[in-house]
Simulated scan of single mutants.
Amino acid sequence: MELNLTRLRRFLSVYRNESFSPAAEDLAMTHSALTKSIQALETEIGTALFERSTRQVVATEAGHRLAAKAQELLAFSDQVREETLSHHPHLRLIAGPAVIDGPLAPALVALQRSQPEARVTVETMPPDVATVRLLRREVHALFYHSMTVASLPSRGQLKVREIIDEPYVVALRSDHPAYRHGGSMDDLLQYRWAVPGFDRLYQSAMAPDREEAFRKAGFPHYRVLNTAACLSLAADGDAITLVPRSFALGEALASGLVTMPISHAPRYAVSAVTLTDAPRMIALDALIAALARE
């Protein structure tokens, strides 16, 4: 079944207006022409989309379902048209909060120098939702912690490249008791933690004994969407946060925090995820190479 996009746009106008007359006026077409267009769409799909009465037009269950999907389809259609007509590459990316706050910004600066015409849109969202969008080809690549990536669905359709692997360090106030006593990750679980982007898939990829220790400790006490907020909780409160070593050299010290290495801690490993059959994009290759150098 091939859906006519023009009819879908007309259907959405009727759906939003709950009436044919104002929808026809919005679309600059006659009431009868709009009615025939909706009837053709119903024939095309094979089910009624509206319950019609003399006073109002009410969507059927099928109409409600189509409205939700039609908006996504039309938005994607507009994206395809824009990218087809554009002379410049437009990278659409989804990344974890710690990637956006950490290595992505300097990598984008490097991309700007090597590919000055490239446009980039970066979003963050739960990784399983991001994977659905990648499989729908609504975005070009995902960047998440490698432990999260290991638990993504549909791995057979995904090309995974680990591009960053470095130690985490603890960032905390110099007067925090943990700084005086030090210790392993297990020792530090007794304190309050603030962590960016500690998602369900990351947690499920842990070894069972590790996951149990984190669960019993209530780790993390604060799970927020960016590293800057975690650093503020550490600087102005009693929280400890975990940051990549390269990030700690600048941002953590700028916040007035001290850092210390930690034994038995997970590593900051980031993977780039694309579709196995995706066409090559020079701008994306350049960005991934820049991330790998950061």
Rank of each mutant, 00 (worst) to 15 (best):
L3H: 08
L8C: 02
R9N: 04
L12C: 04
R16P: 02
R16V: 02
N17M: 08
N17L: 06
D26N: 12
A28L: 09
L34C: 03
T35H: 09
S37L: 01
I38R: 10
T43F: 03
E44C: 12
E44L: 10
T47I: 05
F50C: 06
Q56K: 14
T60F: 07
A68P: 00
A68H: 05
A70F: 09
E72D: 14
E72Q: 15
L74N: 09
A75N: 06
A75Q: 10
A75I: 01
F76H: 15
Q79Y: 02
Q79W: 03
Q79R: 12
R81D: 08
E82L: 11
E82K: 13
E83L: 11
E83F: 05
H87V: 12
H87E: 13
H88Q: 11
P89K: 07
L91V: 07
P97S: 14
I100S: 14
P103H: 11
Q112I: 06
A118E: 04
D128K: 11
D128Q: 12
R133I: 00
L134I: 03
L135I: 14
V139P: 04
V139A: 01
H145P: 14
S154H: 14
Y168N: 11
V170I: 15
H176N: 08
R180C: 03
H181F: 04
Q190Y: 00
P196H: 01
G197A: 02
G197Y: 03
F198E: 05
D199Q: 01
R200Q: 13
Q203V: 10
S204N: 13
D209I: 15
G218Y: 04
D236S: 03
G237Y: 11
T241W: 01
V243P: 15
L249K: 09
G250D: 09
S255H: 15
A272C: 12
I288P: 10
A290C: 06
A290G: 08
R293P: 10
